[in-house]
Amino acid sequence: MELRIFTEPQQGASYDELLAVARCAEDAGYAAFFRSDHYLKMGDVSGDPGPTDAWTTLAGLARETSRIRLGTLMTAATFRLPGPLAITVAQVDQMSGGRVELGIGTGWYGEEHTAYGIPFPSLGERFDRLEEQLAVITGLWATPPGETFDFAGRYYPVSGSPALPKPVQAPRPPILLGGMGAKRTPRLTARYADEFNLPFASVEDTVAQFGRVRDACAEIGRDPAELRWSNALVLCCGRDDAEVARRAEAIGRDPDELRENGLAGTPGEVIEKIGRYAATGSQRLYLQVLDLADLDHLELVAAEVMPKV
């Protein structure tokens, strides 16, 4: 099981704090540093120092790290036009030497759209727009050098694009899709994704949704083994129960609830639960770290959990 670090900077984090976490994760041996793409804190809206832009952050980290992979869970399709987003991701891929991954979704948090003047259409339209965005982004990246790209979209028509710049990774940076949608999410995953991610889902729900995505792959003749399968879970690990409780209190959660719904407990408990997700076919875990000042948390898991999973 590959372990990756996943952060939620909209809850209040500066770029320097994110850089410290990314460097700690890299030094400790984690495979990737991912961040959410949100512009408003969930809950109390204070959230000093305020949000940081996901792709601006990743561009900085691309130059200040050397090995760890970098990406989003998930970039909101409502935030950016697909052509400029394809350019941005390709440029950050170049800046990182080919270490970028694009997680993208419909966008779901209506309040942040209202707070920053971003249109927020209906869910059906957001899925329509996401599908066109995926077609445009992958089409631009796949266009051979010297040729142009056209797309007759309803929302994002493209004509005569030189489809530049190109990312470093070939054929493209990995694309992640995810969520519990029963119909369109599996279909879009089968057609466009390199990885399918389930955030904060139980083992039972993981089995069911992975099955839907595998069925969608079969419908279009795609081998589901071409996909990577992953989960994201809140992390709360401690050397003993007292340390687990302290870390749970620091993020405003109950230890027992986290043991049930997250990845919580002593290293032995965490290893056991990781095994349950591995049995579903999950190959990667994104460990949602909510207390970004607690770098010992990352180092503990790297030392006591990572070698055994």
Rank of each mutant, 00 (worst) to 15 (best):
P165D: 09
P165S: 06
K166Q: 15
K166P: 08
K166E: 10
K166A: 13
K166V: 13
P167M: 08
V168K: 04
Q169W: 11
A170K: 11
A170M: 06
P171K: 02
R172H: 15
R172Y: 09
P173G: 12
P173F: 14
P173W: 13
P173Y: 13
P174N: 01
P174F: 05
P174Y: 05
P174C: 01
I175A: 02
I175D: 04
L176Y: 14
L176K: 01
L177M: 13
L177I: 14
L177A: 09
G178M: 11
G178C: 12
G178K: 05
G178R: 08
G178W: 12
G179T: 03
M180R: 07
G181W: 09
G181C: 04
G181P: 02
A182T: 14
A182V: 13
A182R: 15
A182E: 15
K183D: 08
K183L: 09
K183H: 09
K183S: 09
R184I: 07
R184D: 05
R184V: 12
R184E: 03
R184A: 03
P186D: 10
P186R: 07
R187P: 00
R187Q: 15
R187F: 00
L188D: 03
L188A: 10
L188C: 04
T189P: 05
T189S: 05
T189C: 11
T189K: 07
T189M: 06
A190R: 04
A190F: 14
A190V: 12
A190P: 06
R191A: 13
R191W: 02
Y192K: 00
Y192N: 00
Y192E: 01
Y192H: 14
A193T: 02
D194A: 03
D194M: 03
E195G: 01
E195A: 11
E195W: 01
F196T: 07
F196V: 07
N197Y: 07
N197K: 01
N197W: 10
L198R: 04
L198M: 13
P199R: 05
P199S: 08
F200Y: 15
F200D: 14
A201P: 00
V203L: 11
V203H: 10
V203P: 09
V203I: 15
V203S: 07
E204W: 10
E204N: 08
E204H: 13
E204R: 14
E204A: 15
D205H: 12
T206H: 11
T206Y: 12
T206W: 13
V207K: 13
V207Q: 13
A208M: 09
A208P: 00
A208N: 11
A208W: 12
Q209T: 14
F210K: 02
F210L: 10
F210Y: 14
F210G: 00
G211S: 11
R212M: 11
R212C: 03
R212H: 14
R212D: 06
V213K: 01
V213D: 05
D215A: 15
D215Q: 14
A216I: 04
A216R: 02
A216N: 01
A216G: 01
A218S: 06
A218C: 00
A218H: 07
E219K: 07
E219V: 05
E219L: 07
E219C: 00
